Amino acid sequence: MDALKSAGRALIRSPSLAKQSWGGGGRHRKLPENWTDTRETLLEGMLFSLKYLGMTLVEQPKGEELSAAAIKRIVATAKASGKKLQKVTLKVSPRGIILTDNLTNQLIENVSIYRISYCTADKMHDKVFAYIAQSQHNQSLECHAFLCTKRKMAQAVTLTVAQAFKVAFEFWQVSKEEKEKRDKASQEGGDVLGARQDCTPPLKSLVATGNLLDLEETAKAPLSTVSANTTNMDEVPRPQALSGSSVVWELDDGLDEAFSRLAQSRTNPQVLDTGLTAQDMHYAQCLSPVDWDKPDSSGTEQDDLFSF
């Protein structure tokens, strides 16, 4: 819950932080000083300027060897085509990944977070970031790969997607708890209302004896509580940590079903599988986004697919 609360507080303090972009060759504004600060901008989305290598189908939802083989196929196909790589912007948030063309600003792909089953910074092609997700059109699994400016960037994108998945799962947990509370309150309110109706004398007997209905007592009954809980029953509950912020979080049926399955089948359902080692994760978390744009010590960066 700490990640969720800190993310909400950060967004309320400075929503404009989320509009910064990394990996864009110096076009961005001043960047936060450390990885923790940038992680807090996830709610509205972190932007990464990358190059799209392509996509291939895979048979399993996750796995280092599986993704490595898929990336190898994608890279080989991209090299064989001889075409310049498409420059894209990857927007990562707890909602998922939005992929747009840098030149036309046209939407290429919009992947809900619950469809993503794996992401990684490839070991062999260490400047490549990739994720595996279920197609929104059918049940097939797709591996999408992107060329980053350097290994640090690939690791940073991988960690960002993993963190977005974690925050999304926490949102789901909060929403589920809130819905259970509202359902319980609604049920209790309905029981109270039913009890009051059972003990209320029939209207005919009131008229016969000349008694008047006590409207004041009726007004004191917990009807307002019942209506408050039943009027918006169809509205999706939102985490309290975000009250007053500009973010509107809505959970669709697909996300609810997917996270429910994860909660039942996995020990740590909030953790998205990645190909990063503990050492890689520690190294990337210690980086400032400013470091992502620094040239690798191995030599001059080449803006070309064939540089790796």
Results as ranks from 00 to 15, higher is better:
D2N: 12
G8R: 11
R9S: 08
A10D: 14
A10V: 13
R13C: 07
P15C: 00
L17R: 15
A18G: 07
K19Y: 14
Q20I: 06
G23V: 05
R27M: 13
H28E: 05
R29N: 11
P32D: 11
N34C: 03
N34F: 01
T41Y: 11
E44F: 08
M46H: 09
L47A: 06
S49V: 15
L50T: 04
Y52A: 08
G54H: 13
G54Q: 13
L57D: 09
E59W: 13
Q60V: 11
E65W: 15
L66H: 01
L66G: 12
A68Y: 04
A69G: 09
I74Y: 09
V75K: 10
V75D: 13
T77H: 08
T77I: 14
K79S: 07
G82Q: 11
K83N: 15
V88A: 08
K91S: 06
S93Q: 09
G96D: 05
I97H: 09
T100N: 14
T100H: 09
T100R: 09
D101H: 11
D101I: 01
Q106H: 12
E109H: 05
Y114K: 00
R115Q: 09
C119W: 00
A121D: 10
H125L: 08
V128S: 13
F129R: 11
S135W: 09
S135N: 11
H137G: 10
L141E: 05
E142Y: 15
T149E: 03
K150A: 02
T158Q: 01
T160C: 12
V161W: 06
A164Y: 05
F165K: 01
K166P: 03
K166E: 14
K166S: 12
A168R: 13
F169N: 01
E170L: 02
V174H: 00
S175L: 00
K181Y: 13
S186K: 05
G189V: 05
V192D: 12
G194N: 09
A195G: 04
R196D: 09
T200N: 07
P201F: 02
P202Y: 10
P202F: 00
V207D: 02
L215P: 03
L215K: 09
E216L: 11
T218A: 14
A219W: 05
T225Y: 15
S227K: 05
N229R: 04
D234V: 12
P237F: 05
R238Y: 01
R238D: 07
P239S: 04
Q240A: 05
A241N: 00
L242S: 04
S243P: 09
S245H: 02
V247K: 00
E250N: 04
E250G: 11
D252T: 07
D252I: 04
D253H: 13
G254R: 02
L255D: 06
E257Y: 00
S260P: 01
R261G: 13
Q264F: 05
R266W: 02
P269T: 02
V271A: 05
V271T: 12
M281K: 13
Y283Q: 04
L287G: 01
S288H: 03
P289E: 07
D291N: 10
W292P: 06
D293G: 06
P295K: 14
Q302K: 09
F306H: 01
